[in-house]
Design a protein around this nucleic acid. Sequence first.
DNA 1: CGGGATCCCACCGGATACTG
DNA 2: CAGTATCCGGTGGGATCCCG
Lengths: 119, 119
Amino acid sequence: MTAKAIKHEKSIACRSQLRAIHDTLELINGKWKISVIASLSFLGKCRFMELQREVDGVGAKMLSQVLKELEENQLINRQVFDTKPVTVEYSLTDYGRTLQRVINEMAEWGANHRKKILE
Amino acid sequence: MTAKAIKHEKSIACRSQLRAIHDTLELINGKWKISVIASLSFLGKCRFMELQREVDGVGAKMLSQVLKELEENQLINRQVFDTKPVTVEYSLTDYGRTLQRVINEMAEWGANHRKKILE
DNA sequence: CGGGATCCCACCGGATACTG
DNA sequence: CAGTATCCGGTGGGATCCCG
C-alpha cells in the first residue's frame, strides 16, 4: 500500500470520528449547556432559580432556552408541581447521565490546565 | 449537618467543577477547534490545505484564526519550511495530546448518540 | 501554497420589563 | 417562582479578493 493510500485510509477514519465529535458538540455547544448538565449531574434535582444561581452569569432567557433544548434532546426531565406559586424541578434523564464521562474528562482536564498556566 | 448545609457543600464542589469545565470549553469552543485538534490527533502532521480538506466546511479565514489561537495556547506547533512556494506543517504538541481522552469520550458518545437517534 | 484584509450578516446572548 | 417579550449590541463566521 502506498503512503498516499495509507493517508487516505486514515482520512476516512478521521472523518467519521469528526462527525461523531460534531454530533456531540451540537448538543452541548453554546456557553451554558454543559454547565447546566454538569450542575444537574452534581446536584441532582434542581429548580429554575437554583440552576440560575449555580451557573454563574446566566440570564433567565438563556437558561430557559437552554433547558428547553436539553429537554427536546431528552437529556433532562422537567417536572411541574401545581403548588402556589408553581414549582418546577429539572433533573437529568438516564440518557443525560451518559454524558457523565465526557463531563468528567473535561473537568479533569480543565483543573490540570489551570494548574499548568499558573506555573 | 442540615440538608441545607449539605446542599451548600455540594454547591461549592459543583462550582469548582464548573469552573474547570468552563476553562476547558474556552480552549476548545467555537465550531472548529476540536475538529482541528482531532484531525491532527488522528492524522499527525498536516499542512494547511490538508486540514482545510479534512475539516468539512471550514473557510481559510476561520482555519487560520483557529490555528493561531491553538498555537497561542500551546496546543499545536507551527513549522514553516522555506520551500517555494512555502510549506507549513502543523502538529499537536505534547500538551495538545493530553486532550486525547476528552476527544475520545466525545467521539464515542457522539457515535452512540447517532445510533440512538436512528432507532 | 498559506494566509491577510475587507465586507457583511445572522444569531448569540445581555438587560430590562412584564405576566400567570 | 418560573418564565416570556422586546430591544439591542457584539462577534462568530461566511464570501471574496488580494498578496508574498
